[in-house]
Design a protein around this nucleic acid. Structure first.
Lengths: 203, 203
DNA sequence: TCAAATTGCATACAGACTGTATGTACGTAG
DNA sequence: CTACGTACATACAGTCTGTATGCAATTTGA
């Protein structure tokens, strides 16, 4: 099997990937506004011409970077959650813990949580999250409601609100002087929050 | 009573206020990165020289703007919350509704929720929020715990997580096609979340 | 198979924006 | 009244983004 596509498209994909990879590292380290396009292309081994051929502008490259981080992240989390998915409530809690671990990493924190909303705008930010983290939460909530463990309620607003809580918890972990202790503390807080959503006879 | 201070300090305060006011309007409309310092000083009726005399750099002006928005906001909310403050749980719920109304406004949304984390960094962002919104929530939670209505738990992590939920809810309201309906829906979702935190015999 | 068109990218350039350095008028203190 | 400090204006240098142009490699189609 050959790497799919014509020689042109293969070259294109290679440059795109190199640019996104370089951008990811630099954006994670110093933020979207803190790193110029020149430095990105140098790290990727191409020129600015290649960047502006592949992407409309700098925010378009950032958009692709956000998608890449989200995709990798969701893949990792989905694995951990599906592992313990016999009980939908346990799956929710496991998911929360997995989120907490993953989102505390520097590139996830800086790119997804701090810069993305301002650079891409909330709408686009959540649009990307919809197919990833937000989608996972929504499905988990629906499953838990279907099983009767969670009181039936509109899923979308609850999923958003919980994601907001998770994001903030991750930021606390990321900036803590003692991340390990904080992670445990935040996980307990989140479980407490989830327990409150259970139907009373369900516990 | 005369406007306090010497003539110099009075002039200084006037320019600072004019700059912050102008910045607030423009940042709210087009975001921190979307408006240059030249436009701000023109709107404020001064020159860039004045800006860089009063503030270290553009982010320093933004910092002051964030503080101004937070301060005004908290004042408004505190009033509404203290009004219904006989029952600490009712106070919490009233506070949540007040937040939801206030944070849906365009300048609060764009400045406080979208741009501030990325521009100022999470640490500074929450540092400012500590003396305002976050502080209000913490006090309300402590009161509710003291009254026995809420299970006793570490306050700080819970306050952060709830603030994250509130922020996300406000963003949903701000971007909804039908803000009124969404506000009601989000308020109910938040109350549901808060109800889950009540001690069982408390309801 | 060879010319024409397209793709991918490099280079050069124009505009905008931030922060700084320098100059000046007004207040204030001794 | 003199000497200094404060508040501000203007001019400038450096940097960064996005665009226009040119060129080489590849693909198309006749």
């Amino acid at each position: 099997m050959e790497s799919s596509g014509t020689k042109h498209t293969r070259r294109s994909r290679a440059t795109r990937d190199a640019l996104v990879a370089a951008a990811r590292g630099l954006f994670a380290e110093r933020g979207y506004a803190g790193v110029g396009t020149e430095e990105i292309v140098r790290a990727a081994g191409v020129t600015r011409g290649a960047l502006y051929h592949q992407f409309r502008d700098k925010t378009d490259l950032f958009d692709a970077t956000v998608q890449a981080v989200e995709a990798e992240l969701t893949g990792r989390i989905a694995g951990q959650v599906m592992g313990a998915a016999t009980d939908p409530v346990l799956a929710l809690k496991a998911g929360a813990r997995a989120f907490l671990e993953a989102f505390a990493e520097p590139d996830v924190e800086r790119i997804l949580l701090l810069d993305a909303p301002g650079v891409l705008g909330w709408r686009r930010w959540r649009e990307i999250g919809q197919e990833h983290g937000l989608g996972v939460i929504s499905k988990a909530l629906e499953a838990a409601m279907a099983s009767g463990a969670l009181a039936a309620r509109p899923v979308a607003p609850l999923a958003h609100v919980l994601l907001g809580a998770l994001d903030e918890a991750a930021l606390m972990v990321a900036h803590s002087d003692d991340p390990e202790a904080t992670r445990v503390e935040m996980a307990e807080t989140l479980e407490h929050l989830l327990d409150g959503l259970l139907t009373r006879d369900g516990r």
